[in-house]
Design a protein around this nucleic acid. Structure first.
Length: 926
RNA sequence: GCUCAGAUGGUGGAACUGGUAGACACGCAGGACUUAAAAUCCUGUGCCCUUUAAAGGCGUGCGGGUUCGAUUCCCGCUCUGAGUACCA
């Protein structure tokens, strides 16, 4: 029979499902390997051709590892809480659970027909109560924990209470809010229960506090910083404003240092690590307090260059700083107020575009430099950010370009502080070389000496100390939305309390409408009886999108467990993810939060590894490739019914129109299909080139409105899943972004037909021979075994597709019918094209490819006795020599010399050097 | 501005630690088979000069350098893409 891909693919997909071929359990006898994909949000649009790219790569790897004898966990699930289903619910009244269920069914159907080797018995859905029960449970653990900096670990809140009872706050080193009270055990003892809870909240790893949030009125919700782009929401592009609200937060900043250190231990793409490093933004420096002249206030600044403190010529506060009003003198009041008003008017975009203009206002107040008693001016300026450090900065014009610009503009002094600083009239010189001058007691010191001396000096006097600052803020954890995990908390006297662990899951209640209430409360405010017992109201906000995805890889290990998020045995066996494949867009969101939760769970002893994902691969984005037709425009500028081919369009006045890529083949328009594309094109006429209508091409985002969405269903129907899988790999390097282009798919399809024909005779009957294979046949297949193995190990799937094509071409040429050779070929190809390989494997008389082992590469078959290759002399002259492979350097030299009938001379000159590459002589220098 | 990644035929891309650049595939041109089409197969295909061939010259964004030898390493530049945004 000819290659009947539809029948073959359906047959084996059913077989895998019925036999639960890919179901795995912990097995101490086998080494484990965990291959994970970033699970999808099931959107209404279904899968397009870009989605499966990473899944195909991970599936190839998972299947390969199975052939190599590993016990492979390769699961799939859905990140099924999210905004789109809720938006849809608002518009249609359809319950998000219903929409989500339908979308999941579509995803599942589409995933199934690609032939993935997922263990579906372990499927998870974040919106399933049996799943989010454990998300809520982790939330409770976080609430009941604090971060002890002494042990560098999260601990039960009880250990903190014990400390407060015994020693008070003395000696407690905790990650906490800034406004914690200093308490003696006797103080703590007399606090009311309410006061105690209020104080403990400042230490808990998930806590409630008033914070400025990104509020999006159009979406009726709070957004995380990474969901806001240039003052607009990432989803939908609605304006976002700053608003103060009581918000749940996660004390991720407590883990900043460990999150940073951990990056050195994992095999991730450097750009992703770099993004996380920047996001965490560690800077080492010192904090120093500058007392206000004739006042009580002391302004604390953070600096990474405490050594420049003698060069401070002014201090700046952010315009939003809470002391600005208080510290402005009467005669400067007007100017300061004008400046603040002006700053407020500037949108964030303006402020960004405007980084070169210097602006600011003098408050009229002076502060004292604590190291030398100098009297320096206090200014406000919008280049200082309220949200970073202390919102106050010391200005050192000689060492910092921005400070230099500020000082020169406003006529403030520029003091040289290092003898090596040059050209201070032109610009700042941030050097650390040389010795200090004009710097009081550090004069003559080097940078290293000055920093440590100053840190000690400041600390002894209680003026300042060495300090590490992080850019990373605690993560906001609440959303004013419906379709998310309810927060398992109720309120008593305005303070949050956890519900009982045995009361989990706290189910999402039914509501009539999915909008905020009239009084501006979140949608859960509409739920009838949303109370804990009689008296207490539940929390109304729900968890953010990243909650459910921050621990899901553990649930896959044991997805049906109702007593724990996964059993201890399962976690001890599967441990962590060996290979994680997904998009780079999650670099500072999901991948950071997941690492945070993982570290927390490790601190509490629930999981064994500090880092959850050992190796990460980012698959590139698949962009759209749009096709255009060119409509001729008449003199009045109206479109005619004439369309001109792309190569001739410059001879006419034309307007370009998107045309559906599905009616274009190799950029040639299918004319009849175009006439049916839309009623208005029914009578279309064409100006052709070489008898064809060629369409224009542009790379854009894949979207319906651009008619460039390619649906995998269509391709699978036309060519089959095996062709789609191989073609997606053939398209280019996995990590590279590239436009989707169906143009080359025929080549892969042809290859699979050729491959099929290898196992058949002229009459399409299955036929292989048991005769011993020839040397050439063995060479072809062993070359392939080696190459594909190397390719897979370095995630270069595109090059191995080429190797398959070469091998099949060679074996076709050799008319290879050897069972041994063909059997090896099937196994090696099977991770890429599993359906056709299963079919041939069974035709070869074997059962179940999943029981096969990857063939052992035998280097003997690649050895040749004689071969020819070019040799250059001084990189120029070339000749072909045929010689034995295993000659050593000396014998080669002798051989070369002998054949040129010179002793130690070549071309009449003495031989200086013979250059070898991989045992081959490639060049002779004379 | 800063950080990172990249630039190779008409196209996607290969060349893994410097060693015959352009594998493999698409497209295109020509041919075989066929009433025809599909399918399949064969040949050619980096550019230039040349009727053709032989032979030659030029070729991995641009300009230099190291080397017997550079797509690969170094310096400077141009362009493209991604991330980031006054972080003190």
């Amino acid at each position: 029979m000819d290659y009947q891909f539809k029948a073959i693919e359906q047959k084996w997909q059913r077989y895998w499902a019925e036999n639960k071929t890919f179901k795995v359990e912990p097995n101490a006898a086998l080494p484990k390997y965990y291959v994970l994909d970033m699970f999808p949000y099931p959107s209404g649009a279904g899968l397009h051709v870009g989605h499966p790219l990473g899944y195909i790569a991970s599936d190839i790897f998972a299947r390969y590892k199975r052939l190599k004898g590993f016990n492979v966990l390769h699961p799939m699930g859905y990140d099924s809480f999210g905004l789109p289903a809720e938006q849809y619910a608002i518009q249609t009244g359809q319950h998000p659970a219903v929409t989500t269920e339908a979308n999941i069914a579509t995803y599942r159907r589409q995933l199934d027909q690609i032939g993935f080797s997922f263990d579906w018995s372990k499927e998870v859905r974040t919106s399933d109560p049996n799943y989010y029960k454990w998300t809520q449970w982790i939330f409770m653990k976080l609430f009941n924990s604090w971060y002890n900096k002494e042990t560098d670990s999260a601990e039960s809140i009880q250990t903190l209470i014990d400390k407060l009872n015994n020693t008070g706050t003395a000696g407690i080193q905790a990650a906490s809010d800034e406004d914690t009270r200093t308490l003696l055990p006797s103080d703590w003892a007399i606090l009311s229960e309410e006061e105690r809870q209020k104080e403990l909240l400042k230490y808990r790893l998930t806590y409630l506090r008033e914070s400025t949030v990104n509020w999006c009125p159009a979406l009726g919700t709070v957004l995380a910083n990474d969901e806001v782009k240039d003052g607009f929401s990432e989803r939908g592009g609605h304006p976002v404003e700053q608003k103060k609200m009581m918000q749940w937060s996660m004390r991720i900043a407590a883990y900043a240092d460990r999150l940073l250190q951990g990056l050195n231990t994992i095999d991730w793409p450097e750009p992703v690590k770099e993004m996380q490093r920047n996001w965490i933004g560690k800077s080492v420096g010192a904090s120093v307090r500058f007392p206000v002249e004739n006042g009580v206030r002391q302004i604390e600044v953070f600096t990474t260059r405490v050594d420049t403190i003698f060069g401070v010529s002014y201090l700046v506060l952010a315009p939003e700083h809470e002391w600005v009003e208080e510290l402005t003198t009467a005669d400067q009041k007007e100017e300061v107020e004008r400046y603040i008003a002006q700053t407020k008017k500037k949108s964030e975009l303006d402020r960004m575009a405007d980084t070169k203009t210097v602006s600011g206002a003098f408050t009229g107040t002076y502060v004292i430099n604590p190291v030398n008693g100098d009297r320096i001016q206090l200014w406000i300026a919008d280049y200082v950010l309220a949200g970073y450090g202390t919102g106050a900065v010391m200005g050192v014009p000689s060492g910092d370009q921005r400070d230099w610009l500020f000082a020169t503009y406003f006529g403030l002094p520029v003091t040289q502080i290092l003898d090596s600083q040059k050209e201070l009239e032109q610009q700042a010189d941030p050097t650390k070389e040389g010795r200090y001058v004009n710097s009081g007691f550090i004069n003559g010191m080097t940078y290293q000496e000055a920093v440590s001396y100053l840190n000690t000096w400041l600390e002894e006097r209680g003026i300042g100390k060495a300090k590490v600052n992080f850019r990373m803020r605690d993560a906001i954890f609440g959303r004013q939305r419906y379709w998310g995990e309810p927060i398992p908390v109720y309120f008593r006297e305005g303070l949050p309390y956890l519900i009982g662990e045995e009361e989990l899951p706290l189910l999402l209640p039914e509501i009539d409408k999915y909008l905020p209430t009239e009084s501006g409360e979140p949608p859960l405010g509409r739920a009838m009886g949303w109370n804990y017992g009689e008296k207490y109201a539940y929390e109304l906000s729900t968890m953010p999108g990243w909650a459910g995805s921050s621990w899901y890889w553990y649930r896959y290990m044991d997805s049906e467990n109702s007593a724990a998020f996964a059993s201890e045995e399962a976690i001890a066996y599967w441990k962590d993810v060996d290979l994680y494949i997904g998009g780079a867009e999650h670099a500072t969101g999901h991948l950071l939060y997941s690492r945070f939760w993982n570290k927390f769970l490790k601190d509490l002893g629930y999981v064994p590894e500090e880092e959850p994902f050992k190796k990460l691969i980012n698959q590139g984005m698949i962009q759209g490739r749009s096709n255009f037709v060119y409509r001729v425009i008449d003199e009045e500028g109206r479109g005619t019914q004439t369309f001109v081919s792309a190569g001739l369009k410059d001879q006419y006045k034309t307007a370009s129109l998107h045309v559906d890529v599905n009616i274009v083949e190799n950029d040639v328009l299918h004319l009849d299909k175009f006439r049916q594309f839309r009623p208005e094109f029914e009578t279309a006429e064409f100006i052709l080139e070489n008898g064809r209508y060629v369409c224009g091409v542009e790379v854009e985002k894949m979207s319906k409105s651009k008619f460039n969405v390619v649906n995998p269903d269509v391709l699978i129907d036309q060519y089959g899943a095996d062709t789609l899988r191989m073609y997606e790999m053939f398209l280019g390097p996995l990590e590279q972004s590239k436009p989707w282009n169906t143009n080359g798919i025929e080549g892969v399809f042809k290859f699979l037909r050729k491959f099929w024909r290898l196992f058949h005779n002229e009459a399409w009957e299955f036929f292989v021979s048991d005769a011993a294979p020839s040397k050439a046949e063995l060479k072809a297949v062993h070359k392939l075994i080696k190459k594909v193995q190397e390719d897979i190990e370095r995630f270069s799937f595109n090059t191995s597709v080429s190797s398959f094509m070469i091998a099949v071409n060679e074996l076709t040429e050799l008319k290879c019918k050897s069972r041994e050779v063909l059997q090896n070929l099937v196994v090696v190809l099977s991770p890429y094209a599993p359906h056709i390989c299963e079919e041939l494997w069974s035709l070869l008389g074997n059962e179940g490819l999943s029981n096969a082992t990857y063939p052992e590469f035998n280097p003997e078959y690649l050895v040749e006795n004689e071969f020819a290759y070019p040799i250059s002399i001084n990189g120029k002259m070339k000749m072909n020599l045929s010689m034995a492979l295993d000659l050593d350097e000396k014998s080669v030299q002798e051989y070369v010399l002998a054949n040129h009938q010179v002793q130690g001379y070549l071309e009449g000159k003495p031989v200086k050097k013979v250059i070898y590459v991989k045992g081959k002589i490639v060049n002779i220098v004379i």
